[in-house]
Design a protein around this nucleic acid. Structure first.
Lengths: 339, 339
DNA sequence: CCTCAATGGACAACCGCTTGCTCAAAGGGG
DNA sequence: CCCCTTTGAGCAAGCGGTTGTCCATTGAGG
């Protein structure tokens, strides 16, 4: 009695009936489009509000050919390691997109396949997270919908990336400032463009400080579980032992610290370690990890902003935004604990 | 020349035109519905395949009132800590859902608000991750679409959860088997139902082994960054110092280990530590963390399966699936390293 | 007072697909 | 050979919005 059970979804026709106007007028009132008497508009808006009207996404999508959805894809191969890296991005992406009225459709990329959300026309644009995606796939996708690369870049395609080379440079320079001259570079596997860029920064820092690059100080794991153990084993065989390690990411660094300790080596006294990413682990391990902070929240936010611009704005020439990372000094490098 | 640029999306009408039949026949052929001459059906299917036809999701959704999308929501408050916990679930959820032709719409829950993907009719069902959601919201949502709780449970609502009490019981029992009798329970904050269940398991294990519960051994942090430091400080004030800690989750355990070491205490020799979750950190810290493995991949997979059943199946009486966790022995409890 | 432009709103087509109903043709039985 | 039942396929009405076009008022200007 008096309690309205909203069993039937309220449509534009229902509002029209109650307001004594036609559905098209309601549509225009709701979208602020045509001209109409202010009182008519207000009456319609009021009724819509009272009925708690929400436009049906499908109907609207069908009529306007806009979905107000953005897809986001992550390579299945990237998932294991990058997972926790990406969910910071994911959540800030979602929040920002939501504030513009967009939804996020999550999908895992399978090699060359076109994501179904794209082929079925469920999304207006698509964001690709990470470097593990075939270039040919990207080239195919850009023909379908606006594409945005995050934590990756490709000529001619919009991208939000981080200055890996610069970040690595800071990290290595910091180790050098602690007096280290034999600094190893430890990486899960070369081949990931991001890691290669970090390697470049490593070399450049050495070079700029008059330290000649020694190939034997580069230790590579393998693309599989347990790669850190392999890498650390290789590291321990280097004679004389380097006094510091710059690891291409935090997981490698954390794993290395754990294994070095098992070998009775002290971190940072015997071997200093610096990582990259400032992921969840960094602050939780012992000693807390000095690492390069990658502004993942910003990346997500900027990605959302840029995507909205691509979908609604005027500026559509591909643009690449490169964010500056920042060194976070904790203890694993030999610094006193600050944070 | 000869190269077809698929500029216009191919529709059912186009196929009908080429096949010399009506659109409705094409629709039926594609969906395997009505009766028709096999050759007609095959001809239509062939043409559809050649044209690389994909049905428009909006048109279909509008006509059938099915979206083939499932929403998944995480509380914004849960995001910081639970993030990496949930993305394992998220990815297995997506993969499984995808194999049934469903898409995943990701959304962050804001207090009492009905997620927009639901009110706009973008999803057929909704999955809620975690305990940080208002019961009243859940009660509201179940009236709209099928709801599935994951890592949480509520009477009368479908759920996939883990046996927290049992897992905690194993963990504490394991510490007892190492000879510990003064075992602290360390938790970020009581109030999270999952943590409370773990606390129950802790008490039960003590009780079953004739160890009387000592309230002073329960150390609670606070719901904020740095809570571990607060908890550890409280812990260190306990006289005599407990010989073991059962932490309500891995982050707390990892943080505790790191801080205990700063205080010069050895883990596990002076204080043994066991965590809960078997998250990413667990294997990477030193010493590797003994913890309770929560089958997150299974949770995602089962959630997907159950949701599909709710949407398409017959068995709709709410059902609660409780998964058994498993103790993973590493080193922080005092065990020799196994894995 | 008449004409014309501006204004407010209705009509109807359309977006692409589904589905109940209709109907013609074909096949079978008496 | 005729009638009735299958069978195969088309028609058309939606699903819930959007939008181009047209029409009826209204008001201003001559």
């Amino acid at each position: 009695m008096g309690r309205i059970i909203a069993v039937m979804r309220v449509t534009i026709h229902e509002i029209a009936r109650r307001a004594g106007v036609s559905p098209s007028t309601v549509s225009r009132a709701l979208n602020g489009k045509g001209r109409m008497r202010p009182e008519t508009r207000e009456r319609i808006l009021r009724i819509a509000r009272e009925l708690n009207y929400r436009p049906n996404a499908h109907a609207r999508g069908l009529a306007t050919k806009k979905t107000h959805c953005v897809g986001v894809g992550i390579s299945e191969r990237h998932m294991p390691v990058k997972r926790s890296f990406y969910n910071v991005i994911l959540s800030s992406l979602e929040s920002t997109l939501a504030s513009y009225g967009y939804h996020l459709v999550f999908s895992v990329l399978h090699n060359e396949e076109i994501p179904r959300c794209i082929s079925e026309g469920r999304v207006d644009g698509f964001i690709i997270l990470g470097t593990d995606v075939q270039r040919s796939l990207v080239r195919t996708l850009v023909k379908r919908v606006p594409i945005l690369l995050v934590d990756n870049h490709l000529p001619g395609v919009d991208a939000i990336a981080v200055d890996n080379t610069g970040g690595a440079y800071f990290a290595v320079e910091h180790l050098i400032s602690h007096g280290h001259r034999r600094i190893a570079f430890m990486v899960e596997t070369m081949g990931d463009p991001n890691f290669e860029e970090r390697f470049l920064g490593y070399r450049k820092a050495l070079e700029d400080h008059g330290i000649s690059f020694d190939e034997r100080l580069v230790v590579e794991g393998r693309r599989e579980r347990g790669f850190v153990r392999i890498a650390v084993r290789k590291f321990l065989e280097i004679k004389p032992l380097p006094t510091a390690i710059f690891a291409a990411n935090d997981y490698t660094a954390a794993g290395a610290i754990s294994l070095l300790r098992e070998e009775g080596l002290r971190v940072p006294e015997d071997v200093a370690v610096v990582g990259f990413d400032d992921g969840e682990v960094a602050a939780y391990i012992s000693p807390p990890l000095t690492t390069v902070f990658v502004p993942r929240g910003d990346m997500g936010r900027l990605a959302a902003l840029r995507m909205v611009e691509l979908l609604e704005g005027k500026e559509k020439r591909p643009r690449s935004i490169v964010l500056a990372p920042e060194l976070v000094r904790r203890r694993s490098c030999g610094c006193r604990y600050v944070t």
